[in-house]
């Protein structure tokens, strides 16, 4: 509708670039290696049985979810300090990708808990604080996606994002105390770190690499998408005004 002018299209037609193509290729290859080692070549665990294979996704997902939260807080701080839109978009991309990985962490954790503990959910310190992390992230995203001007959304979201990591730490601490004052330390403690060796360790390592690459790829794409969204919104305003004007003209012609 807009770009009907036959100008030479110099910009890219999607959010990908050479960097993301290389990153995406490496991510796919490492995911393939992860499937090979995680599902086929590595042996079942002595205590957890086959369920240990869930950990090869679960643990790296949890790690990159926290990484995304750090991006959000750092981005928010720099935005508030320097008014840099670049960092604001990094914060937004970090939060959304972190939300995705938090959901994956929770679901895989529950699917691991059912065969290992016999239930999908226990009020374990780590599980509870991960659930709280998801709620905190949803709060940030709710503010960031407010139907309001960019300035308003960005600034308010940045205040929430600035407090994201401190909140996560406090929630983590309080939930730790809440559980450990009343019962033994977390059930997970005797889960993974008990005896891990050889192919299992390599599978987990591959999991970290693959999930980190996917995380990086998603962050870059989401960041560019966020940039496009803001451009379209500011463009869209001009367009809407033009359309309204055209409508008004048509209305005058009609009987």
């Amino acid at each position: 509708m807009i770009s009907q002018t036959p100008t030479e299209v110099t910009g890219p037609t999607s959010t990908s670039s050479r960097v993301t193509r290389v990153l995406g290729f490496l991510a796919l290859v490492s995911l393939g290696v992860l499937v090979l080692f995680g599902l086929i070549l590595s042996p079942p665990d002595a205590s957890q049985g086959e369920a240990v294979r869930i950990m090869y996704i679960h643990v790296p997902s949890a790690t990159v979810a926290y990484l995304g939260c750090f991006l959000t807080t750092i981005g928010s701080i720099v935005y508030l300090w320097r008014k840099s839109q670049w960092w604001e978009l990094v914060a937004y991309a970090g939060a959304e990708v972190a939300t995705l990985f938090t959901v994956i962490t929770l679901v895989t954790g529950m699917l691991w808990g059912r065969p290992t503990w016999g239930v999908y959910w226990v009020w374990d310190a780590r599980l509870t604080s991960t659930a709280m992390l998801l709620l905190l992230l949803l709060g940030y995203l709710a503010v960031r996606r407010l139907p309001a001007d960019y300035e308003v959304r960005a600034k308010r979201a940045a205040i929430v994002g600035l407090l994201l990591v401190p909140n996560v730490m406090i929630v983590r601490k309080s939930v730790d105390w809440w559980r450990t004052l009343h019962q033994k330390p977390t059930l997970l403690a005797n889960g993974l770190d008990s005896k891990i060796e050889g192919l299992m360790l390599f599978s987990l390592f591959t999991g970290f690499i693959a999930i980190s690459l996917v995380f990086g790829w998603l962050i870059v794409h989401r960041f560019r998408l966020a940039w496009l969204e803001e451009q379209v919104e500011s463009e869209g305003l001009d367009l809407a005004i033009a359309e309204r004007r055209a409508e008004a003209l048509v209305g005058e012609v009609a009987p």
């Binding site: 509708m1 807009i2 770009s3 100008t7 299209v9 110099t10 910009g11 890219p12 037609t13 999607s14 959010t15 990908s16 670039s17 960097v19 794409h221 560019r224 998408l225 496009l228 969204e229 451009q231 379209v232 463009e235 869209g236």
Partner: peptide, 15 residues
Amino acid sequence: GRRLSKQVPPEKRRW
């Protein structure tokens, strides 16, 4: 991203 790219002038897409 592909859909929105069409709506944004090329000079705003610098990667």
